[in-house]
Computed example of a mutant assay.
Amino acid sequence: MWQAANLSDRRRGWPIRHWAWLVWTTLLVVLSPLGFHVAAAEAEDKVQPPLQLEAKIPLGDVRGRIDHMAIDLKRQRLFVAELENDSVGVVDLSNHRVIRTLTDLRQPQGIAYLATTDVWYVANAGDGSVHLFRGSDYSPIGQIDLGEDADNIRVNAAGTRVMVGHGNGSLAVLDPSSRVKVGDVPLKAHPEGFQIDDSSGRVVINLPDDHSIVVVDDASLKQVARWPTRDLAANFPMALDQDRRNVLVAFRRPARLGAFSMEDGSVVATTPICGDADDVFIDQKRRRAYVSCGEGFIDVLDIRSAAYPRVARIPTISGARTSLFVPALDLFLLAARTHAGQPAGVWIFRPVSE
């Protein structure tokens, strides 16, 4: 009797347990993907980005576009080209504050500091001049007129030559001792980003309006090679990957990074990057490349791989496209213009090792 009743009870209870089992199973099937994505998102949030924002140094009442930067390592002073403000801000990185603003400039673009002579060079797009300032007190000590649109500046490793891109197609060579122009390399178009490869004695130059990259011999100041960029256009920033002997060039149309062999200019790799790139730097210690873009991102690329894949995209602010990586201080500095209520400033990032 008990067994029959118990069996009857089980049969009457079975549908309830059966439906409970079905409901539970369905919930598991439906919710498990959600749970997986939530867990994945939480895990992603816990991963440290390769660049961590440490501080923002306000630049004061700076309007419009900000261009390139350079650093005096001994004093830890940063020069910031405030292009549309016709000024240069001098930032004390140790104390995170602006200590001087240099005025009476004409759309300053390129900046370089030469430690051997303790002189700052500021190239002006507005009148084609290069202004020289003493490193100790920022007093003006000279001016070199190049004609028009003085732009990027580079100094060779020996500190014996200062090169400035300018005009419709020229690379001026300045002598730091006499502070005069001693040479001019004719080019087919206005030079944008360029780099001096001291190991080979060559200068590699972006000519976006010519859809090319050209190579100039540093000794003879003659062009020795031209590499067409073909379907890649608007090549502005450039860096040298010395380990792989590649030239890294950031293009804006389309937004891609191209790696070119230093030997013959052949395309080694291309990879998508953020839009409106204006600076690219190599972090040799971590084998990374950093690309800063006006679209509002910093892209981090893995240069251990021949394909240069992107490993991180760090959001910044629209228009913040110029930057400076300082290996000696292990800092990545980003120039952020005034945007959406945020004041202009220098954002300080600290690279994080894997």
Rank of each mutant, 00 (worst) to 15 (best):
A269Y: 07
I99S: 10
V80Y: 05
F236K: 10
I298M: 09
A125L: 14
R161I: 00
L132S: 05
L232V: 09
R313E: 12
W227V: 09
A250H: 10
D241F: 12
Q76I: 01
G165E: 02
D92W: 02
R17A: 15
M69P: 08
V23G: 10
S136W: 11
F236N: 13
H131E: 13
Y138C: 04
A289M: 03
V164W: 00
F260V: 06
L248P: 04
A5I: 13
R77D: 08
E54V: 14
A158Q: 03
Q48Y: 10
I205Q: 02
V38N: 01
I99F: 10
L7I: 03
I99P: 13
V173F: 06
E42A: 06
V300S: 08
Y138D: 15
L22P: 00
Y290I: 03
G159A: 07
S139E: 14
Y290T: 02
R134E: 11
D118T: 06
I16K: 15
M262D: 06
V38Y: 07
T26K: 02
P191R: 08
V130I: 10
L257M: 12
L232W: 13
A41M: 04
E354P: 11
S318Q: 15
Q48N: 12
L174I: 13
L174G: 01
F260R: 06
V38G: 01
D279H: 15
Y138M: 14
I66E: 02
F325W: 05
E263F: 04
N124V: 12
P327R: 03
I317V: 14
V162Q: 01
E148Q: 12
F36N: 05
W227M: 09
L78K: 12
P108K: 00
D302H: 11
R63A: 03
P186E: 10
A335E: 14
T117G: 09
D330G: 08
R202T: 15
G341M: 09
Q3Y: 04
I303Q: 01
L83I: 10
V122E: 06
D104C: 10
V29R: 01
S87Q: 02
A40M: 04
Q76H: 10
D149Q: 08
A189W: 06
P58A: 07
H190Q: 14
F236V: 09
T322K: 09
S87Y: 00
V215L: 10
G159R: 03
D72T: 02
H166T: 00
P108A: 09
D198H: 13
R350T: 02
Q107M: 12
N156K: 05
V268C: 08
Q107R: 13
S87N: 00
T338G: 12
D145S: 08
D67V: 01
G275C: 13
G258C: 03
I99C: 09
A40Y: 04
P272S: 03
